[in-house]
Design a protein around this nucleic acid. Structure first.
Lengths: 211, 211
DNA sequence: TCAACTCTTGACTCCGGAGTCAAGAATCGG
DNA sequence: CCGATTCTTGACTCCGGAGTCAAGAGTTGA
């Protein structure tokens, strides 16, 4: 790796390394998309390679095995997603109900619009190689954490009437995970309306009465 | 039924045929279990055969292909399940809230205790060969129908405060479909308690306030 | 321009699952 | 008990996906 110039700057990667990094990101994004859509078994590395206009061998230059590729893809996708949820300003301030609504909408929105991919992880965790399962659980834990904080805030302030947080969390997560399935055939405004209506329905779980 | 006397009754199948029927049922039950647990791609016919203590060739004596076997398995399992939901007395009489509670408990109970199998159908319908998808949709439609009737009854009687039935239906179904996933590690009384608590949580979706 | 390095290719092996089939075992009806 | 029928077996082919690798194309830095 890179000794560039007389004084090699350890912090700044060279051109080659940056290019390598970008390539890897491309691969991970594409992989996440395909695996998310069709599942681990149903997607071959040949499929992934074809989508990238390269050959299988090229993928093996960057990743040692199918498992390793999938692991990395889950990792990347999970981090990005969680970061967006955690970074939502609405998730941290305002009335608990509004915060929760914002979170739910964001979660569903990401799922439906950007990573229909990702949810398959939560839908059927057993389907993934056991090496991935710990990773998936951790991802799930972090998502739950974001929601749990808001739920607790709402319970503390009296805005939410929830006797047990855990089942509400499970139920919400399950419902959000299913959205890409039934949303698949919708687009545009119809889809947005469906998302909003669904989010509103989920708020019933914390005692919110609409209207 | 059939004493095979001098006069062969055309309506009553002979011994051979009954035996054949039983064998087919055995195969379908086992297949449903395995495919449900691990998914279409992950289970080979060799796996199914091994579980039945026969060889693959034997399965091909009864079914022309993997697809045909899976189709039949889905069909059988779906019919049985739907029949049980539709046949629940509690599903037809009494206060809407009690009827709904009974339905939810039964649905989750079957899913968790008897066919952890089955739910994978609803979790990720795209994962199944397209030939099966119409069948799965039909099965789902029939389940929804059972729940829809109760929801409508509750809305009509004023017991439920629901502004839109469809999202509630979607949400409930999604939540119920996930139960085997998070319930997998529970057994005995702990599991029963979890099921009850979860069912109670789902009732929040129709405006029920606990306590 | 050249040498070193990075990346890509395509042909290869290996393996496991789908599906086939002739032959033999088990069962049935008489 | 025997012939016919039903069922099961195990060895077979075929195919597609995982993983390997030597050789060549593309880049980079001097």
């Amino acid at each position: 790796m890179g000794t560039e110039g007389a004084v090699a700057d350890a912090a700044a990667p060279g051109r080659v390394e940056r290019k390598r990094g970008r390539r890897i990101q491309e691969i991970l994004t594409t992989a996440a998309e395909l695996f998310g859509a069709q599942g681990y078994e149903a997607v071959s590395l040949e499929d992934v390679a074809e989508r990238l206009d390269v050959t299988k061998g090229s993928l093996y230059y960057y990743f040692a095995s199918k498992d390793e590729l999938v692991t990395a893809a889950i990792e990347t996708l999970g981090n990005e997603w969680t970061a967006r949820l955690e970074g939502l300003p609405a998730g941290r301030e305002g009335a608990p109900l509004d915060r929760l609504r914002a979170l739910v909408r964001e979660h569903i929105g990401i799922a439906v619009r950007e990573y229909p991919a990702a949810l398959r992880l939560f839908l059927a965790p057993q389907e993934w190689p056991s090496a991935q399962q710990a990773r998936i659980k951790e991802l799930r834990r972090r998502h739950d954490q974001v929601f749990r904080r808001v739920l607790e805030a709402g319970v503390a302030s009296g805005d939410f009437t929830v006797t047990a947080i855990d089942p509400v969390l499970l139920c919400m997560h399950a419902a959000m995970s299913q959205t890409p399935v039934w949303c698949a055939h919708l687009t545009g405004r119809a889809r947005e309306r469906a998302i909003d209506q669904y989010a509103e329905t989920l708020l019933l779980l914390v005692g919110h009465r609409p209207g």
